[in-house]
Nucleic acid binder design. Structure first.
Lengths: 333, 333
DNA sequence: CTGTTAGCGCTTTCAC
DNA sequence: GTGAAAGCGCTAACAG
């Protein structure tokens, strides 16, 4: 199926390619009749422009690469929905890649995108990412890059995130205000900035309420179910087990809750869970985690997309922006 | 940041662009020293080819469009993961669009993809899609297209799906074998082929077990939560309410279950639910829907991607394939 | 108002 | 083995 080109249109109309081009893009300096003729023939022949050629000419692809750890995590699929909505309306397309929290894969994805030619990139970093050379490479190439959620604040790129420290503080304080003092932290890996911020919020809250920090209540995990299960058992095996667990996210809360239930504990009575995510399906649970932090992923994605669009518009006088989306603590019970 | 081009490499090496091109792609008829020199300089200058130019030349973009109703539905995010895995390894990139079960949007998405230039398209149709003109257009343009899950069997495109009728039959039979006879069907819209197939499976099972079909037990919905709620109430308001509900998918089961619970019914005792999807988070429920049909979305996506890759390889002698992925009824209780 | 011309960056005959 | 040249489809000065 040989696509019909402007050359063909020009030939049939006995005119030149440039005239056809101008007519098609409603250039002012073009005769009315000619414009109409061209338009008519184009429609008749079902002409559609070759975007690749335009891309080559314009040095842009109207493609934006998006790299997230897991599409299957609700947080990310909602964020991508926000990204897609903004980008689509601005004429961009989303090229998607998952890093699966694996450094190698993330690097591969970024390289593929650069090689493939995208006008910009939006990234939420994987938990396994221990260095930033791929991002530096993107910056070196002058491709606009925006981070969201799992960001790198030390890089000169704009980023969108929630104040994890503050949100963590509020979550832990909620528990403290309930009179609970033995609160455990079931965290992500130390390598993740957001794990450290959770820790800070946790520490701050305890400090403010003059509860002594007990290191045995602090566990890090690699975010896997197995590790969550293991560390939860460790916590519940303690001589004085925690009354509440502040977990990395709802997925972790849910897995930890299963363990607690198996061990005969009653949720929201013997033990309380709070975490990030505010997963929608928790509403179907008889006993949902006590509270959760809503991070508004759709809005975060949309904001990141908007920042990227700005950056792509004016690659020269690019101003780094750091946008903090205010999270909200949702008490479920 | 002006990217470095082959022209630049050629200039610096005092050779021609064509030689550089050949050296870079390990053309046989090229001097060893020259090849090494070119390679070395390319590495040094961090040369990377302009994919758009290659695309224009090769008349292909290595981009594949994927259109699904909702990214946030686990079924689709898993399918896309399968698609992405296969496509990435074959050197293709996934361009993602969501139709949100809206015909206009689906049409827009398909058009944007065609215009944008993709080598192929994978689609799972939206529930609101009432005609196929956009697919016909894709076919007319000779762009390979493969359907999965929500397919159009009457079109000449390959497709991958589960045997909904058979799976529905098994699901309903499971209930019948439990001695339940008053079974309702909470279906999707009539416009969806897969709704009709569910209905057929339902009818077949009842017939085989010589249970008379009672039309008041059959409800269609537009898949929205509101409509699900409404129709569930209608069913439970009946003089003789159903003992079991076969719902479109787990999301619908869950919403319907909420209503049943609110009305004081005990799940898996007073009323049983079965549906499609086998959502992973149901494992966290005290009382999950009684059974669910696992459709192996990852495998479906992967298979669809493989079919598309084949179709893109040999656009001429294209053979339509219809692949049926065997589903599995998972009894949860 | 319209045609000519020169590319965008790369591949690929066709010569030498 | 290497270079010159054409061309993928389109845009945009530059001349009329």
């Amino acid at each position: 199926m040989s696509q019909i080109t402007m050359k063909e249109l020009a030939k049939r109309l006995g005119t030149s390619v440039s005239t056809v081009s101008r007519a098609l893009q409603n250039h002012p300096r073009i005769g009315l009749k000619m414009r109409e003729d061209v338009m008519a023939l184009a429609k008749e022949l079902n002409y559609s422009p070759n975007t690749t050629a335009i891309n080559l000419k314009k040095q842009s692809t109207k493609n934006v690469g998006v790299v997230v750890p897991w599409l299957t995590e609700q947080f990310f699929s909602m964020a991508i929905t926000g990204i897609e909505d903004i980008l689509f309306e601005k004429g961009y397309r989303v090229v998607l890649q998952q890093s699966r929290d694996d450094f190698e894969r993330e690097e591969q994805a970024i390289q593929a995108l650069m090689k493939h030619g995208v006008d910009g990139i939006i990234v939420s970093m994987g938990s396994g990412t221990y260095n930033h050379r791929h991002f530096l490479e993107v910056n070196r190439k002058g491709i606009p890059l925006v981070f969201f959620d799992r960001v790198v604040k030390s890089l000169p790129n704009s980023c969108v995130y929630t104040d994890i420290t503050q949100a963590s503080f509020e979550a832990v304080e909620l528990l403290l205000n309930k009179g609970l003092t033995k609160i455990a932290l079931l965290n992500g890996p130390n390598t993740m900035q957001s794990s450290n911020e959770r820790l800070m919020g946790y520490v701050n809250a305890l400090k403010l309420h003059q509860i002594e920090l007990n290191p045995i209540y602090i566990k890090t995990t690699d975010l896997s179910v197995e590790d969550t299960v293991k560390k939860t058992h460790e916590l519940l095996d303690l001589a004085v087990p925690p009354q509440a667990i502040f977990a990395f996210h709802d997925y972790m809360s849910l897995d930890a809750m299963q363990i607690a239930k198996e061990r005969g504990l009653i949720i929201n009575q013997d033990i309380f869970f709070v975490s990030f995510s505010n997963l929608s399906f928790c509403k179907y649970l008889e006993k949902p985690p006590f509270a959760s932090i809503e991070q508004f992923p759709y809005e975060m994605g949309a904001k990141a997309a908007n920042l990227l669009v700005d950056a792509m518009k004016k690659p020269d006088d690019y101003v780094r922006e750091e946008v903090i989306i205010r999270s909200k603590l949702i008490v479920r019970v």
